Simulated assay, not measured.
Amino acid sequence: MIRPTLPSFHVCDLSPAWQSALIGALVSLPVAVVVNWMPNSEATISGSIMIIGAFLAGVIAALRSADPDAAGFRAGLLAGVVGVSTLTLSVVGNALGGGIEAWPLSRVVFVVVAGVLFLCVAPVFGLVFGRVGGGFTTTVISRLVTGTTES
């Protein structure tokens, strides 16, 4: 009997680093919500993606034999885009709602410079935390394989 094979449908072909970054970013969102429930805490979505998402992206990349640095960098880039988009949408929403008056030039320049700086710094933090997540995973797996429990 001949069985028909279904064609393989790929929505989009992403590199393993981007896959790990997207998974890490999505998994870090509920963590940000839980952290916000704690007293005296203010976790932002972009901060959660930049730190926790990049760490998890590094872990996932190390488990998939991909580059954890690249996955963390990409998760940090996603965090930067989310952070700047959030800032832009809140400013535009307030301006359209009549909540703010016209800004002086110095404030506009500050917001633009801060957004660009955040877009530059977030991937670096993501790279660092992705490397930490990858190193953590490599260390734990190597100790589980060898049976070593000493530091």
Rank of each mutant, 00 (worst) to 15 (best):
M1A: 14
M1N: 05
I2D: 11
I2L: 13
R3L: 09
T5H: 08
S8L: 15
S8W: 06
H10V: 04
C12E: 04
D13N: 12
P16F: 06
A21L: 12
L22H: 07
I23A: 10
L26G: 14
L29G: 10
P30N: 08
P30R: 09
V31H: 10
V35D: 02
M38D: 04
N40P: 00
S41A: 12
A43W: 06
I45P: 01
S46F: 05
S46C: 10
S46I: 00
G47A: 10
M50A: 15
F55N: 10
A57Y: 03
A57R: 06
A57P: 01
A61D: 04
A61G: 11
A62I: 03
L63V: 12
P68A: 09
G72R: 03
F73P: 00
R74P: 00
R74G: 04
S85P: 00
T86A: 15
T88L: 14
S90G: 04
G93H: 04
N94G: 07
G98M: 02
A102V: 05
A102F: 11
W103D: 06
S106P: 00
V111I: 11
A114E: 06
A114N: 04
A114K: 07
G115I: 01
L117N: 13
F118D: 06
L119E: 04
L119P: 00
V124P: 00
F125T: 14
F125Y: 15
G126D: 01
L127E: 02
L127G: 02
G133K: 01
G133H: 02
T137M: 12
L144H: 07
T146H: 09
T148C: 13
